[in-house]
Amino acid sequence: MTDDSSAILDDLLCRWHQWASSGSVARGYASRALVCGDFRVSRQYDDTNGALDDELEHGTMKTVDFQVSEMRDPWRSAIHANARALVVGAAVWSSPRLPADRVERLHVIAEARAQLSERLLAAGVL
């Protein structure tokens, strides 16, 4: 993996982790009205406020999420741990599904990143 593709994958993983973590953790009020919750404004002039960019980002993150979910363990766990570490900026989390040995763990993470890069390349994200 080149430095550019590694930086692009780092950015995608950071954005994906934040996107996937943005769910609600408790029950509360609905985020949309029952009567008109499915109403959508015409997107004809929606390029100035970023709604089209948000929709594109949402589609990209759904693709990344699907590709990660299709990976097998321990590589899927390695991607989750790597994404979490990239968001925080420090590798402070460990996973019981990853090897305890640091060198082996780094090897599994590198292999998982390579697998995900191939998947995202085939999906048209990278």
Score class of each variant (00 low, 15 high):
residue 64 V to H: 05
residue 86 L to M: 12
residue 81 A to M: 04
residue 76 R to Q: 15
residue 98 L to P: 03
residue 25 V to M: 14
residue 99 P to D: 07
residue 105 R to M: 07
residue 27 R to P: 01
residue 40 R to Q: 14
residue 118 E to V: 06
residue 110 A to P: 06
residue 123 A to D: 06
residue 53 D to L: 09
residue 29 Y to C: 05
residue 14 C to Y: 06
residue 36 C to F: 13
residue 13 L to E: 06
residue 96 P to R: 10
residue 27 R to V: 00
residue 46 D to R: 04
residue 44 Q to P: 01
residue 12 L to C: 10
residue 3 D to F: 07
residue 110 A to N: 15
residue 2 T to W: 09
residue 3 D to A: 14
residue 52 L to P: 00
residue 4 D to V: 14
residue 22 S to Y: 10
residue 71 M to H: 12
residue 59 G to W: 00
residue 52 L to T: 06
residue 7 A to F: 02
residue 124 G to V: 07
residue 102 R to P: 02
residue 4 D to C: 06
residue 30 A to M: 12
residue 102 R to F: 01
residue 52 L to R: 06
residue 45 Y to E: 06
residue 99 P to Y: 12
residue 100 A to S: 12
residue 45 Y to T: 05
residue 106 L to M: 10
residue 14 C to Q: 12
residue 126 L to I: 06
residue 114 A to R: 15
residue 42 S to M: 00
residue 50 G to T: 01
residue 49 N to T: 00
residue 116 L to V: 13
residue 64 V to G: 01
residue 89 G to C: 05
residue 9 L to Y: 00
residue 105 R to N: 04
residue 10 D to N: 15
residue 19 W to M: 11
residue 103 V to Y: 03
residue 63 T to R: 14
residue 89 G to F: 05
residue 100 A to F: 07
residue 1 M to S: 14
residue 64 V to K: 03
residue 4 D to I: 10
residue 30 A to Y: 03
residue 97 R to M: 14
residue 34 L to Q: 11
residue 102 R to D: 09
residue 86 L to I: 08
residue 75 W to D: 11
residue 114 A to Y: 07
residue 126 L to A: 01
residue 118 E to P: 02
residue 96 P to N: 05
residue 20 A to R: 14
residue 49 N to E: 02
residue 13 L to Q: 05
residue 99 P to C: 09
residue 32 R to L: 09
residue 65 D to L: 02
residue 118 E to R: 08
residue 82 N to R: 08
residue 103 V to C: 02
residue 49 N to A: 01
residue 51 A to N: 02
residue 88 V to M: 15
residue 65 D to T: 07
residue 4 D to F: 11
residue 125 V to D: 05
residue 57 E to R: 04
residue 118 E to S: 13
residue 124 G to R: 03
residue 122 A to Y: 05
residue 100 A to V: 15
residue 115 Q to W: 09
residue 105 R to Q: 07
residue 12 L to Y: 07
residue 98 L to E: 02
residue 26 A to S: 08
residue 6 S to W: 06
residue 92 V to C: 09
residue 97 R to A: 14
residue 44 Q to M: 15
residue 96 P to D: 12
residue 52 L to G: 08
residue 70 E to C: 11
residue 48 T to I: 04
residue 31 S to K: 07
residue 90 A to L: 11
residue 44 Q to V: 11
residue 77 S to V: 03
residue 9 L to H: 02
residue 102 R to H: 05
residue 15 R to T: 00
residue 75 W to F: 15
residue 98 L to I: 11
residue 94 S to T: 15
residue 59 G to V: 00
residue 21 S to V: 07
residue 15 R to P: 02
residue 8 I to D: 04
residue 80 H to R: 11
residue 103 V to F: 09
residue 68 V to G: 00
residue 23 G to R: 14
residue 86 L to W: 03
residue 41 V to E: 13
residue 126 L to H: 01
residue 31 S to P: 05
residue 80 H to S: 02
residue 23 G to C: 08
residue 109 I to A: 12
residue 108 V to T: 06
residue 7 A to I: 11
